[in-house]
Amino acid sequence: MSSTLPDGAPDEAPGAVPDTAPDTAPDSAPPLLSVRGLHVTFPGRRGAAAARAVDGVDLDIRRGEIVALVGESGCGKTTLARSLLGLVRPTGGRVTFDGAPLGYSARALKAYRRRAQLVLQDPSGSLNPRHTVYDIVAEGLRIHGHAGDERTAVAEALSRAGLRPPERFFLRYPHELSGGQRQRVVIAGALVLQPELLVADEPVASLDASVRGEILALLLRLRTELGLSALVVTHDLGLAWNIADRVAVMYLGRIVETGAVEQVLTAPRHPYTQALLSVLPEAPGAPVVLTGEPPDPSYIPGGCRFHVRCPVLASGEAVRAGVADACRNEELEILRGGDESQVACHWARAERPVAERAG
């Protein structure tokens, strides 16, 4: 069930960019953003069961680090990202930023959003078509009462986002721009407040393949030049390979595998991660087709939450490893928020000691 990517293969994919990222912050440094035991539950409609969209997540993002949060639609990754910005209030757990708990008063959230900004996936929907580029980028400055020179700040943000000379774009409207230029305006609107953290939700999903690499290269350059941290939410493991230092794979409200991007994407341990990787064009072998119903946060099965779709259990490999009963009945603990390699899988944990003894 192992799935590996050939050396250098992802870089040959459309939109791939070279890894120009600097070393991340030392492991001993405290994280910029820390999440512990986070839960977000939405009440069900008309007597239906509540939806546990985020069901226990620990996650750290260090200064200057890019973390990719990956998973299929419905796994809870967008809800998690929005909760990190205070857009969705958690029903349990805590979010800590720069050592201080996140407050949820209007004043506290306003101050926090100067330091943590959201980049949405659809620039056509997130940009006001009646506003000029200048007004779109300047909006954050006006909301937060910027005391400096507004024109200079807007020009610097547009220039950093790759729109040069910036004055040429001041009086343009979104419909006059290409898709890549619109996404750069969205990024400039986030940069104008000089944040420390960007949360990018599928930042290149709506762009042509020829433009994707440019935007990914821009995010890497911003990390290099400004020391920005970023959480990149995506369903695309190829994107994660190209941009991230670490990857966290999410399934049904929880992170099921995490670690350095090279380790997770070249030697995945969780069957879900292996299935996600198997559909990449560069992956060897046939794609793994998951059977069963897609994840439903209002019905979380007992035991391992992936076991009803797990090909390892269906093939009998879990029985041979002696963990089939555990897969069906024993819930796995929440993975810790550090940067070490971790997996929430009874079979993967049983297989590792065997491999170590064989080595």
Rank of each mutant, 00 (worst) to 15 (best):
Gly8Gln: 01
Pro14Ser: 01
Ala21Lys: 10
Ala25Gly: 07
Val35Leu: 00
Arg36Ala: 13
Phe42Ser: 06
Arg45Asp: 13
Gly56Leu: 14
Val57Met: 00
Asp58Pro: 01
Glu65Arg: 02
Leu69Cys: 02
Ser73Glu: 03
Gly76Gln: 03
Leu80Gly: 01
Arg82Gly: 00
Leu87Glu: 02
Arg94Pro: 01
Arg107Cys: 05
Ala108Asn: 03
Leu118His: 04
Val119Asn: 00
Arg130Ile: 13
Asp135Asn: 15
Val137Lys: 03
Ile143Thr: 15
Gly145Ile: 14
Arg151Leu: 08
Arg160Asn: 07
Tyr173Leu: 09
Pro174Lys: 09
Glu176Phe: 06
Glu176Met: 13
Arg182Gly: 09
Arg182Val: 12
Arg182Gln: 14
Val185Trp: 05
Val186Trp: 01
Ala188Lys: 11
Pro195Ile: 06
Val199Trp: 00
Val199Cys: 00
Asp208Thr: 10
Gly213Phe: 08
Glu214Asn: 12
Arg221Gln: 14
Arg221Met: 00
Gly227Trp: 04
Thr234Asp: 00
His235Met: 01
Leu239Met: 11
Asp245Cys: 02
Tyr251Arg: 02
Tyr251Ile: 10
Ile255Thr: 05
Ala260Pro: 15
Val264Trp: 04
Arg269Ala: 15
Leu277Thr: 08
Val279Thr: 11
Val279Asn: 00
Leu280Cys: 08
Pro284His: 06
Pro297Asn: 06
Ile300Glu: 13
Ile300Trp: 10
His307Arg: 14
Leu313Arg: 14
Val319Met: 05
Val319Lys: 08
Ala326Tyr: 07
Ala326Lys: 08
Glu340Trp: 15
Cys345Trp: 09
Arg357Ser: 13
